[in-house]
């Protein structure tokens, strides 16, 4: 199969996020970036498909902090090709990013067994999800919140998540865009030494494309941190003291 995985860097929310002086965007100074969670699964799903059914995996990213490490890691895990489009992701917005990626992917006709696997959504999707915008631009079928993909007879059967643990199977004609939420297996681990070796032996291809005419189409009035709507009563102290206080709370609410 001809598999494309799109990799997006997002701020790591384990770090504190602060609003910039413009009152609209995030303060970039202390942001630490990591690969968007669903993309870890999209890559894993692509690698599993390649192992089981043959083909090649191309990972594609726009320019973002630490993205080279992520692309090399993908190569170390088993991707065949890594492509970087040197247009900065920062401030671009989903609609414009979709346009750039559609330009790249749509520049030649698709092989009939092509699957484009973006993450289903990301934590900064203010303008919507990229996968459906991309599918619309490429005029390809789309399914989102996908957690399993099985090829059969030139098509794929995909599993989409609903709620309450309910899932459903859909039959999808190829080529298609699938927004991946999780994979059949957890993302594989690759030792740092292997990534280092790949950094020496492999190359990231650079593909120049014109930047989109209109980044970020929404008018943001204000960005801010939510006010605590009823903050928890905090139990202070060492783990031992906290445990004592928790036991008291559990007794008070008659759980023990």
């Amino acid at each position: 199969m001809n598999l494309y995985v799109l990799l997006k860097m997002v701020p790591d929310t384990v770090e504190e996020l602060n609003v910039a002086a413009d009152g609209k965007s995030l303060d970039a100074e202390f942001l630490r970036f990591k690969l968007s969670d669903p993309d870890e699964y999209a890559l894993e799903q692509a690698l599993l498909l390649k192992e089981q059914h043959g083909g090649s995996v191309t990972v594609v990213a726009l320019d973002a902090p630490e993205v080279d490490d992520v692309l090399f890691t993908a190569l170390a895990k088993g991707a065949d090709r890594a492509v970087k489009i040197p247009i900065a992701q920062a401030g671009l917005g989903t609609v414009a990013a979709a346009r750039v990626l559609a330009d790249f992917l749509g520049s030649a006709p698709f092989a009939p067994d092509t699957l484009v696997l973006p993450g289903s959504q990301a934590i900064d999707d203010l303008e919507g999800e990229l996968a459906p915008f991309l599918a619309a631009a490429l005029k390809l079928p789309y399914v989102g919140v996908v957690c399993g993909v099985t090829p059969a007879n030139g098509r794929v059967t995909v599993i989409k998540e609903f709620a309450g643990g309910l899932r459903a199977e859909f039959d999808v004609t190829l080529p298609a865009v699938l927004g991946i939420q999780s994979a059949e297996k957890p993302p594989r681990y690759v030792p740092v030494a292997k990534v280092r070796a790949v950094m020496k032996s492999a190359q990231i291809e650079t593909v120049d494309l014109p930047p989109p005419a209109r980044p970020g189409q929404l008018e943001i009035e204000r960005t801010y941190k939510p006010e605590a709507a009823g903050r928890a009563e905090m139990l202070e102290g060492s783990p031992d003291e906290v445990a004592d206080k928790l036991v008291d709370v559990l007794a008070k609410i008659s759980v023990i």
Partner: peptide, 12 residues
């Protein structure tokens, strides 16, 4: 509501 609930943006 963005960034896992850590940030809000008002959009007009």
């Amino acid at each position: 509501q963005l960034f896992g609930g850590k940030i809000l943006s008002d959009v007009k």
